[in-house]
Design a protein around this nucleic acid. Structure first.
Lengths: 139, 139
DNA sequence: AGGCGTTATTCCTTTTTGTATATTACGCTA
DNA sequence: TAGCGTAATATACAAAAAGGAATAACGCCT
């Protein structure tokens, strides 16, 4: 029997290990993000979350779609929105469908800018990976 | 009265904010590290720790010098040493001076390799930083 | 044999971080 | 006006991570 509702905590932001990576057993890894005046501003998790909000139209559904608690999702969105030069999302409670959340033009732009940096970073890691050898001597 | 012994927990691995950085209030940040078969293998903290061990000759003194608990230092060293292709440090308990820990040739090499990647990464961040603007429109 | 300083290990507490659940406010709709 | 699904917030709970302190083993030294 499948044991539903196991209450296992999800490992946060796995950032999916690339298939076939790390054949040698050693891998150069890393993360990038942007800091605003009060700490983390946008990173991998928030970028994904923004996309899910755009896709589903609400924080609630976005959170569910990525197996994240609403509370966590709301906090991520909130810290991001507070620090943004101008809001990345606009929320509304009540009304047709109960309300919802939409991503603004600036939010879309932030997503694009971040993914751009992110892709460059992945490229950087791949490139640096190539010259990685801990066994060689100084000689 | 200066209130000594306040028991304030140290913020881990501050990686010292560069002076004059982030004039705009927004900053691209990041970390890199290496994964071995069982998780984190070497990163900024372990690299510094290795250098301190080389400098002081023992885990105990190295830990104290960087305001880290022996327990924490030992665990970092242990996870690193276990995953290393060949040991990065050699420890000995008992004997003249009580024992000590020395960094091996392979350990030295690992430090060098990591700092090399680290410097390249810092350069990458600085470079990408230059083209960072969340306010511009798509137009 | 006993002292010493180090490594290695254990136990308990504290801090941090995220989850689960419940409650209120909101504003359209029927 | 009652129902609805959402945002927003508070409280309690759980798990993981880190710290502190205590202790044993070790091997040279006096």
């Amino acid at each position: 029997m499948p044991q539903k509702g196991k209450k296992v905590r999800k490992k946060q932001l796995p950032e999916k290990r690339r298939k076939g990576a790390a054949r040698s057993g050693y891998e150069l890894k890393g993360r990038i993000w942007m800091d605003g005046p009060q700490g983390t501003f946008i990173g991998y998790g928030r970028a994904i979350l923004l996309e899910r909000i755009r896709e589903h139209g609400s924080i609630t559904k976005a959170a569910k779609s990525m197996d994240m608690s609403y509370r966590q999702a709301w906090r991520l969105i909130n810290t991001m929105n507070e620090q943004a030069p101008s809001p990345f999302v606009i929320t509304s409670a009540g009304g047709r469908g109960g309300g919802g959340t939409v991503v603004t033009e600036h939010g879309e732009n932030a997503i694009n800018v971040f993914w751009e940096k992110y892709r460059a970073f992945q490229e950087f890691l791949r490139h640096e990976m190539r010259y990685l050898d801990f066994t060689k001597d100084k000689s």
